[in-house]
Design a protein around this nucleic acid. Structure first.
Length: 315
RNA sequence: CGCGGGGUAGAGCAGCUUGGUAGCUCGUCGGGCUCAUAACCCGGAGGUCAUGAGGUUCAAAUCCCAUCCCCGCAA
């Protein structure tokens, strides 16, 4: 089948790579336009584009596809199926309707749970212990289409956003390969979602990064690892500067101190009180600095026993 | 010209305002104590203070100028 691939970040790149290496005919790739990145506004191509160029696949980066803007190009590519993974834009109906075999999407959750932009992070934040990738037919609504198959991925306490993301990209690759095979064989399932069970995984914003220690230990732990290493859970130090907390461990210790209080700074860990336990912070990134082990931060006297970490306020 | 922080020993920092002796915590090496230790004690090594045979000065990590690099925010 002649495939048109649409996707943007690393998650999509991994899947594109899997399809390409497994002999699928990738007629073209559509990805987001290069975006200015960082302080110097350097135009940075999305990962998918980098791979496509390397593989000699034509790349299209339309600013918009609304109102038929992409129709001519689409007709020229003339795909039999469109495979989408984290593209980042809503596809208009004229595109969804074009391919003979339809549009299929790799979504990073076990639908109908966690529809939306940040399913991987939300799964960790919500304390899920099982997630996965759903291969689905795309419909007009947001991640509402009929499901083809799922590949499950367990979430362990050792996972953070980064490690889970990588596992999910692998699962996504398998899901899409299997889905394509099933479609070619005419055996693809088409299971409608139970809308009553759906949840929405909203995009991660600044306010989602604000870390409150006035919560159960488990929640604090999930908050930290679900946002690590990017963008990072943020706490506020007594100095008024922010401190990103990138890694931590749960402990069995108990305390009755105010949540956020630094209980000890020994052993290279920063022990902080939560609502019902003690969390040991092991890696941080102070404002304006690079990431560093908690031990290094302590050596530089960044924080002391008795200090209280508070929750930053974002609007 | 978006706003801001920074570059000092392997790591993290202080010192700069008010120029004049290279400092702190950790690590590392050696020794000691101990049943033992990531604990404690003693001692040592390790630094072109980002770059510029720049400027000012009797004297620059410190003040001035230029350049490079790193990072946070915003986007």
């Amino acid at each position: 089948m002649k495939v048109l691939f649409m996707g943007t970040p690393d998650f999509a790149k991994t899947i594109l790579e899997a399809l390409h290496e497994n002999g699928h005919e990738i007629a073209a790739v559509v990805t987001q336009p290069d975006k200015p990145k960082g302080r110097k506004k350097i135009l940075t191509p999305p990962p998918v584009k980098e791979y496509a160029i390397e593989a000699g696949i034509p790349v299209y980066q339309p600013e918009t596809m609304k109102n038929g803007a992409f129709a001519d190009t689409l007709a020229a590519i003339d795909p039999e199926i469109i495979v989408v993974a984290a593209y980042g834009k809503i596809l208009p109906s004229y595109i969804l309707d074009y391919p003979k075999y339809g549009c299929i999407n790799a979504h990073g959750s076990l639908l109908p749970r966690h529809r939306g932009a940040a399913p991987i992070q939300r799964a960790i934040l919500m304390g899920d212990t099982l997630t996965g990738v759903t291969a689905m037919y795309m419909a007009e609504g947001l991640d509402t289409g009929d499901m083809i198959l799922k590949v499950e991925v367990p979430i362990t306490d050792d996972d953070n956003f980064e490690t889970l993301h990588d596992k999910m990209a692998e699962a996504g690759s398998r899901a899409m390969l299997d889905a394509l095979l099933a479609i070619e064989n005419g055996t693809a399932a088409r299971t409608p979602q139970d809308d009553s069970l759906s949840t929405y995984a909203a995009k991660i914003e600044n306010k989602d990064c604000a870390l409150s220690f006035d919560a159960p230990l488990r929640d604090v732990f999930n908050h930290i690892r679900g946002l690590s290493p990017i963008p990072g859970a943020v706490a506020l130090m007594p100095s008024g500067r922010t401190l990103k907390i990138l890694a931590a461990r749960m402990t069995n210790e108990k305390t009755d101190k105010t949540p956020g209080t630094v209980l000890s700074t020994t052993g290279g860990k920063i022990a902080v009180a939560t609502k019902d336990g003690v969390i040991a912070i092991t890696e941080v990134q102070p404002e304006g600095k690079g990431k560093m082990p908690a031990a290094a931060f302590l050596n530089g006297r960044g924080i002391a026993e008795g200090d209280v970490l508070t929750q930053p306020q974002y609007e």
